[in-house]
Design a binder for these strands. Sequence first.
RNA 1: GGCCCCGUCGCCAAGUGGUAAGGCAGCGGUCUGCAACACCGUUAUCACCAGUUCGAAUCUGGUCGGGGCCUCCA
Length: 492
Amino acid sequence: MALRLYNTMSGGKEPFEPLVPGKVGMYVCGVTVYDYCHIGHARANIVFDVIYRYLKYAGYDVNYVRNYTDVDDKIINRANERGISSKALSEEFIKAFDEDMAALGLERPTHEPKATEYIEQIVALVATLVDKGIAYESGGDVYYAVEKFDNYLKLSKRNMDEMQAGARIAPGEQKRNPMDFALWKAAKPNEPAWESPWGPGRPGWHIECSAMSSSLLGDSFDIHGGGKDLVFPHHENEIAQSEGASGKPFVKYWMHNGFVNINQEKMSKSLGNFFTIRDILEKYDPEVVRFFILSAHYRSPIDFSDKNLEDAKAGLTRFYEMLQAADEIIASNPATKAVCPEIKDEEREIFDRVEMMEEKFAEAMDDDFNTALALGNLFDVVRALNRLLGEKRFDDCPLSLKVLADGVKKLRRLGAVLGFFASDPTDWLEKQKSDALQDGDLSAEQIEGLIAERKQARVDKNFARADEIRDELDEKGVILLDSREGTSWKLK
RNA sequence: GGCCCCGUCGCCAAGUGGUAAGGCAGCGGUCUGCAACACCGUUAUCACCAGUUCGAAUCUGGUCGGGGCCUCCA
């Protein structure tokens, strides 16, 4: 089954057929750089990171553009509050954004343009719209006349009359129609400004995306993405600008990710439940955050809560523990040419499961990037490989070893498409332990000391004392795991 | 008020016409000196009502409940 994706424009899933076979042009709205990014930005960027990775995995040559909007009212206001230039402020938060995305393990897009580097193209685009009579100059501002564009509001499926009833003209604006929006704003004191045919000024919000996307992807391209909240007005206005200017269809597939709620409530600054990516990464491993986000479909709302993050951590730990066990077995069992005496039915089943892994993964991802289903399929593989590990037949059945090695390799390759399992399992698991110990009153040394004492007690067959130590540690959240190689520990 | 979305096991979450994936938690086993891990088994008829259909969680209408957008927002 080929890739199908949900198109906001049509409201349904459609087969994915790029404009140019084998190639994909994809534009995702980045951030306005005036503050630190929050968990909602994390979701949007992780979702499109996975879409980017999967398209490449599926064999497409992807041109992925994600912009920085570095000129905007909010930037100007914030910069003035702090008494620094807009440029200094935006540079500060571009750097912060890059750091956050790197911490979350995102791949870099093909292009990461900044609005201020495309002023020339923006001015040219506005001029084209003015020449075509779609936009008009008014007191140094330039506005888009929405009634000149027949398809306005087709993406958000709104009604012009009803929208106008609620629309207002802000003080200082000189629009003909309340629904018109600014393409260019005349310069005011203490604002960054560039020369233009309408006098010094700066771009409005929306026009930068039209200019950057056409410069880097052409007038028409395949996928345009962003958060659901951008459907109106941002994306609606982009369509009006781009199609109004070029006369060609702008975007073939519109994709929008759902919101992140905090403990069942909408995330908002007024509720004080605003978490930045930095706050979250203090407490949770970045891969756990990614796992949490990808365990739901990208269009569904997700609820950010401690419980949900703990669940995600438990799930990811299950993968890493299996990988760790498998790595140890593979490292300690050199491949031989011996032939298995016989293959059990259960083993046959496991082998099939590994065999089917890629197909099942693609099936899930092809269905509008269903990462939740894809992860569920990978969990099935974990159970299968754990069974194989439990059989302990690696001495007399090299085929089992081969299947295990093959399974682990495939699991890592597919995991990488979702951005998982890049760490060494032992390193990752150790890091979770040491991070968790930070909050407790027990050190690793103390735990090791008690383990040594218990080991002696067990040698002495003093099981009462051995159990006492186990219980004592258990109360503090430390679980002991005895094995042939000795005793290790983990945290609840 | 307009437009849109959602309501699946204790929790999270797939599933858009053919008799409910997966994870976490729970319970019963195997393993273990005891445990843990792992494995095996076990736990739902899909908010409610009425329709369409041979057949619906999946389609239609209605009821109740929750949420989003309409102003800056991923």
